[in-house]
Simulated scan of single mutants.
Amino acid sequence: MTIGYPMIRFVLFALILTFFAYPAVSGSPVSAQKTCPLDGEKFEIVETVSCSTMGRTMSFKPVTSCDFVTRLPVCPTTGLPLYKEFSEEELERLRPFVETEDYRTIRNLPPWQRAYRIAEYLQHTGSKRGFQILLMAFWHEHKSFLNNSDLAGKFVEEAEGEMDRDDQGKPFIAAILTYAFAASGEPEQADAWYARATSLTDALGTQNGNVDFLRSYLKRLGECRDMMTSAECLPDAGFRP
């Protein structure tokens, strides 16, 4: 099975809890064709037949052997991000929407942030999908995302909801939000989330094998909070325990 567009459907923190237990498998790019569901326009995307995670960055974004894949296909003419396979009912709502002034405004946003606004319109937010879209925006569009105060606030709301749904993912989500607040220059919020992430990590005890990894990440994150502009603390800087 190829990996690319369907990656948005993954169970995020199940992968986080196991990613460093496996050897790296190098992926090879595979071209595939997508069809825009609104107008039938065809365009090329890049997928792969194999992929593995080899580490994390300081924003906790996975470093993979297939970073070249098209994670979010975007229709060239309409600018619609295909973050899911839309139902016929959803497409009926989207067809008039993409002709509106509201959509023209949304289209100026980077793709993942645009996808979230469309998800809001279709009432897909306040869910695992909403959290995953904003997490991808944070990881792949971090500069503009952190400057968008409204979406940054939505990120916290979606993260809180995801923590309610996913007990095992709680410390990881709290650690990611610690980094997000530190990177956006909000030290008080960063400190509060750091304390929360540390407490949640301690509460894991020996329930899984990733506690040591997460503690190492939090230690590095604690060191970075007062020097976020240094090269080793930037969002895409590599992290190894």
Rank of each mutant, 00 (worst) to 15 (best):
I3N: 11
Y5S: 11
V11M: 08
L12T: 10
A14F: 07
L15M: 09
I16F: 13
I16T: 06
F19L: 10
Q33G: 11
K34A: 13
E47D: 12
S50D: 13
R56M: 15
S59M: 05
V63D: 10
G79A: 08
P81L: 01
F86S: 13
S87K: 11
E90S: 04
L91G: 13
E101S: 11
E101G: 00
R104I: 00
T105P: 00
P111N: 07
A115M: 03
Y116T: 03
L122G: 10
G126I: 01
L134E: 08
F138A: 06
H142Q: 11
S144V: 07
L146E: 12
L146D: 11
N148T: 07
K154I: 00
K154F: 04
E160C: 01
M163A: 07
M163F: 04
D164R: 10
T178Q: 04
Y179S: 05
F181M: 11
A182I: 05
A183M: 10
G185C: 03
E188T: 11
A190T: 05
A192D: 15
D202M: 10
T206M: 13
T206I: 09
N208T: 11
F213P: 02
S216G: 15
S216E: 14
Y217P: 02
K219W: 06
G222M: 06
E223I: 01
A237L: 08
R240K: 07
